[in-house]
Design a protein around this nucleic acid. Structure first.
Lengths: 152, 152
DNA sequence: GTGAGTTGCTTTAGATCTAAAACAACGCAA
DNA sequence: TTGCGTTGTTTTAGATCTAAAGCAACTCAC
């Protein structure tokens, strides 16, 4: 049955892809982490939160942050706490729902991210330098396919 | 200058790709973590180490493990320690280099991984189900490009 | 209105992680 | 051989992370 054989091979290839995705992500993360620490004395998770907030001046709720970043809500609580201590973000209670908090960057935070996002963009461009424009588009589409696959 | 504009757009697209890669990886990791815990009472990092060792019966040194998995050596020390406690792997001192240790799966570990790798393969196949065969090949190639990019 | 279920977030316990220091073993030039 | 830089791992301190429990606020059918 060539059908079965084909599927098995495809499954094997998908596992291979998965492992390569993991390695690629960890390699890039490692490079970004090192540079963020060196140039901005900032950790990668904190930058990720800051960058997400920097892109949305109105601010985001904790839940929205954790969904955007695909991390647990408890995790976001801790990171935001540190960022508040550093004066980079501020939390506001929401009038229509007293359980929720709106998190937004402070002036200090925006000032920092003005430089940090520029550097980050350049670093990512450099780290993904080998990926051509058509491949970038194709890869984005594939990553979206993966994320939106029907979950059993 | 169309050259500059083109490059800026490409840089922006590369950042977008990077963010999509992160989300895709975290989404798949999350699904795998949940299933590993449910079906095998095992964490993802421990499975990753086990799977790497399971593929190499002769065993691997700590450094080789950390390079394969793209994690710090200190991290591997901790994970392997837990796996030894669980009787899933064993450490042997190497005769030609007394600093190094060879880590290999035990019978118990191989027995477990016999089932676990099968399930894992099926899960990954399901989670990446939307990715066609040509796209899988393309994506693998792109991931390799990223990992082997010249590092500044 | 009110009680049950849901939601938004924090807390807790415990497992990863990294960076950097510490150490012992190695290798090799002088 | 002896000194010294390198290598392989572990240790340490501290920052993330997740899962799950805990809590308060919200919703909505009754």
């Amino acid at each position: 049955m060539s059908h079965k054989v084909t599927n098995q091979t495809l499954a094997t290839q998908r596992v291979r892809l998965w492992l390569h995705m993991l390695k690629a992500v960890r390699t890039v993360e490692s490079a970004l982490r090192e540079r963020l620490r060196k140039h901005f004395e900032m950790t990668l998770p904190r930058f990720d939160v800051m960058a997400t907030l920097y892109a949305v001046p109105e601010g985001l709720r904790m839940t929205e942050l954790s969904e955007q970043l695909v991390v647990s809500s408890g995790n976001v609580t801790g990171i935001v706490e540190k960022l508040v201590e550093d004066g980079l973000v501020e939390r506001q209670s929401m009038e229509n729902d007293r359980r929720a908090h709106l998190v937004k960057t402070t002036d200090k935070g925006r000032k920092l991210m003005e430089e940090a996002t520029t550097a980050h963009r350049a670093w990512v461009d450099e780290l993904l330098n080998e990926v051509s424009e058509p491949d970038v588009a194709r890869a984005i589409s594939i990553m979206l396919d993966i994320r939106h696959a029907p979950r059993g």
